[in-house]
Simulated scan of single mutants.
Amino acid sequence: MTDTGNLISRNAVFARDRFRAGLRINPSGNLTVVGCVDPRVDPSHVLGLSLGEAAVIRNVGGRITPATLRTMGMLGKVGQAHQDSRVPGDWNLVILHHTDCGMTDLAAFPEMLAEYFEIAPVELDTKSVSDPFGSVRADVDVVKQDIPGGPGFLVSGLVYDVSSGLVETVVPATPLG
């Protein structure tokens, strides 16, 4: 078991060897990643991200739910409040799903899933719960419908294979708006 004493020790090594003072609140990579809470699929590790490079939102399945959209809206306001720390260039939203996701186990609980997505149970087929390739396409579509983009805002969908460690592009970076 990993206990808090072990975590404090690891943190001391981090603070000594890898901590970077002066990072800004806006990601240096103009990047937000939405990914799953599965411990095998930490987006920062899987995508080789550096500290401060991306905002990472993790939830069950890495799904774009109404709660995720609200979180992104709040993050957008924080980013606007710190506009001086924003790096010029396109803003990228990456949706990262993965194979062998526990979300597929939840297909047996349609009422729970419907509540999670804030939809009626009869609409669950549109969420492709058991197919990471279909689900990432569905979530990119939700973003394209629900987030006002405009020039300089991109969304893409990736699937990580937990067997090979490789990421596949399912939806290439597409402009919003």
Rank of each mutant, 00 (worst) to 15 (best):
N92G: 00
L31H: 13
G62D: 02
P27E: 08
M72D: 02
S50V: 05
V60W: 00
D84I: 03
L75Y: 07
G73L: 01
V41N: 09
G79E: 00
G76P: 02
A54N: 01
P39T: 12
T71N: 08
T65D: 13
P43W: 09
R40M: 10
G76E: 07
L69N: 03
S50A: 14
V56N: 03
A54T: 01
N30R: 11
P66H: 12
R40T: 11
R70I: 13
S28V: 06
G79N: 03
G89L: 09
A67L: 13
A12R: 15
V46I: 15
S44Y: 13
H45F: 12
G79R: 01
N26P: 02
Q83W: 03
T65N: 13
C36E: 02
I8P: 02
K77C: 09
S9V: 01
N59T: 12
P66N: 12
L69D: 08
E53V: 07
R86W: 04
E53Q: 15
T71R: 03
F19W: 11
P39H: 03
V87L: 10
V87Y: 05
L23P: 03
R18Q: 15
G89F: 04
A67R: 05
N92K: 13
P27C: 09
L47V: 11
K77M: 15
G61P: 02
V46S: 01
R58M: 12
G52C: 13
F14W: 14
R40N: 14
P88V: 10
A15M: 05
V13A: 15
P88H: 01
V78F: 12
V60L: 12
R40V: 07
S85T: 14
L49T: 05
G61E: 03
L31W: 09
A67T: 04
H45R: 14
K77G: 04
A21C: 10
V34N: 05
D84T: 10
V41S: 12
M74K: 02
A21T: 11
S28L: 09
M72T: 08
V34H: 04
R24M: 08
V60Y: 01
V46T: 11
